[in-house]
Nucleic acid binder design. Structure first.
Lengths: 170, 170
DNA sequence: CGTTCCATGTAAGACGTTACATGATTCC
DNA sequence: GGAATCATGTAACGTCTTACATGGAACG
């Protein structure tokens, strides 16, 4: 599944603006997908041209006007088909680990600082994820969505433990 | 760091062929980077044109001839500079989690099968990583490289535990 | 007054993926 | 006989990423 199908999947849950789609992606799916407006808006435009979504303009007085997108039956069909195709391999690229791998000649203090920075980043990510669990549950969280949350929590927790253990050697 | 700098980093550890570079990437860095020949060979060619590496042809009788690449002082300078630039955010994209997220309407048996498949994949990955630890140590493993290994092990172990716990509910 | 939130878009280019093309040797 | 290992490369294409462009309202 690429950006196209992912946006269709989100719209299958209800009509949304591009801005809202970004918000969902940045909060709930942040630990296993990354999106940007530069990808969302052009994709929505293509999806509309393909008649997989429809656009409705909403005029607002206190906020900027917005375009609300809704999935069509054709869009649902495309999404459902994609959902049953072969699962692609996961992609993980870590610049942090790459630098650690090559950081054989770095002085201990630099490695220590480097680890501290990553520990801070990951602690922050974990906190952000955990902070919205209650809200997500109140909005309706499916059993399978709960697994994706637990997965993220386990990932951050386990790698943080590894990083902290490593830190004590520098 | 992109493919370019990563290949320079590997060549900083000694002269290698494109085939060997792929092998290192697929075994030791597999859990945080993904490479393909379609990227390695063109990159090596560009690097040679930029005089950051030199190519030496080696004729072999029992195996196909090969091109051994060696980093130049200019190449080392480029790599060292890249090593001290700002660390980029990690990128994780999981088609598996995406499907779980959207799999609210799937029957329980399908979810169960889906989880079993991912458990099998990750178990396999963990085994592959662990199986080469002794060899890696014997070849010379730095303290910081050890952290990247531990990180991968912790990631697979923790997510497998989450997946297995989830599996028991389906 | 500065920042965050709301809100939408375009254009160029970087970067990598996928598919194709070839072929001898060795191991099971 | 079939698969895996060793070995190198090209061409087309897809998919984002980055930078640019704009702007009012609310909050502190």
């Amino acid at each position: 599944m690429k950006g196209r199908e992912i946006i269709l999947g989100i719209l299958k849950g209800g009509p949304h603006t591009g801005y809202e789609i970004n918000d969902i992606l940045q909060t709930r799916l942040n630990h296993f997908f990354d999106a940007s407006f530069g990808m969302i808006y052009p994709t929505l435009k293509k999806l509309e041209a393909e008649k997989l979504v429809t656009k409705h303009q909403v005029t607002q007085s206190d906020k900027p006007n917005k375009n609300v997108y809704q999935i069509t039956p054709a869009g649902e069909a495309v999404f459902l088909k994609a959902l049953h195709e072969q699962t692609a391999d996961e992609v993980f690229k870590s610049d942090f680990l790459m630098r650690l791998y090559f950081g054989q000649d770095l002085p201990d203090e630099e490695v220590a600082q480097f680890l501290d920075e990553e520990i801070a980043r990951k602690t922050q990510k974990l906190l952000e994820l955990q902070s919205q669990l209650d809200f997500w549950i109140s909005q309706g969280m499916t059993k399978t969505q709960r697994i994706t949350f637990d997965y993220g929590e386990a990932y951050y927790t386990a790698t943080l433990a590894t990083l902290k253990a490593a830190r004590s050697n520098f």
